[in-house]
């Protein structure tokens, strides 16, 4: 039971994550990294943004520090705070501070979910200054040369209350992610779930068809991740139709009519 927990800045991706390149994003990321330009990953949910980050951090052997943003995230949560320990106060670094110190990749997932006043702390870190002001300690921290800030967001959510401010977005290089093409996606599903090519092909075909319905009532089509879930169920012996319904249709929508239409499509494909 020992060595179960490690410090977040020590988290290194040791085995090569499986990642199939869709459109030169590896080379672009590398160029951004070499030039110390922070990166914005745009794209629908489940299309491989996080996996891509794992891959890149493995590739450059940098620790990967991921923060999932939410609307209660405060600046202290990111930068650090004083804690009382045995009658004394101790400063504890937040994830972003740790990443800055060790020169890791700091990945702020779903950045739009964070409060606006929190988002702005990354500004000085995301331009040529590359510094992190730690207000409470009255310090400025210069980022290690290997440090890279990466944020992700999904432009598909149309909520007017959640948008990335221009002043934030204009500090980044934007890599757009979409679902991989049919062949690539089949390959990915095959690899991730070990199912046979024809079944993977049918899953991809179903995924494609759900994406056709985006303007007709679905807010998003099936992500590659969902397709992989279904594929894994199929691999463990679940009937493909049931796998698609529980892993895909049911998660995409609650609308009864839409679920029925999706299940007709499933019946037609499998």
């Amino acid at each position: 039971m020992e060595k179960k927990t490690i410090k977040i800045e020590e988290y290194l991706v040791e085995e090569e994550p499986y990642y199939l390149e869709v459109d030169k994003e590896k080379a672009l990321f590398e160029a951004a990294y070499r030039n110390r330009i922070p990166v914005l990953l745009k794209g629908p949910t489940g299309c491989g943004k996080t996996r891509f980050m794992e891959y890149m951090s493995w590739r450059f052997k940098r620790p990967l520090i991921t923060v999932s943003c939410h609307d209660d995230l405060t600046v202290s949560d990111l930068v650090g705070r004083y804690l009382v320990q045995g009658g004394e106060t101790v400063w504890v670094d937040g994830p972003i501070t740790r990443a800055v110190k060790v020169g890791g990749f700091c990945y702020l997932d779903e950045i739009v979910e964070a409060r606006k006043d929190t988002t702005v702390v990354i500004h000085p870190l995301a331009d040529h200054r590359r510094i992190l002001p730690i207000e409470k300690r009255g310090e400025m921290l210069h980022a290690a040369p290997e440090f890279l800030l990466v944020i992700s967001y999904n432009p598909g959510y149309q909520s007017v209350l959640k948008d990335l401010k221009q002043s934030t977005r204009q500090r980044f290089l934007a890599l757009e992610f979409t679902y991989p093409g049919r062949e690539l996606e089949t390959e990915i599903i095959k690899h991730e779930s070990e199912i046979d090519a024809p079944t993977a092909g049918r899953l991809v075909s179903f995924g494609d068809k759900t994406r056709n319905l985006v303007s007709a009532g679905l807010s998003e089509g099936a992500s590659t991740r969902l397709l992989i879930h279904a594929a894994k169920l199929i691999h463990s012996g679940v009937d493909p139709k049931i796998a698609c319904e529980v892993a895909i249709s049911g998660t995409l929508t609650d609308d009864h009519e839409m679920i029925r239409a999706l299940s007709e499509i499933i019946q037609s494909i499998f």
Binding site: N212, A216, A261, L262, I265
Partner: peptide, 13 residues
């Protein structure tokens, strides 16, 4: 009708 239209849109785009 609604179901079939959604179905057609799904399979055909």
């Amino acid at each position: 009708t609604g179901l079939l239209e959604t179905y057609l849109m799904g399979i055909s785009g």
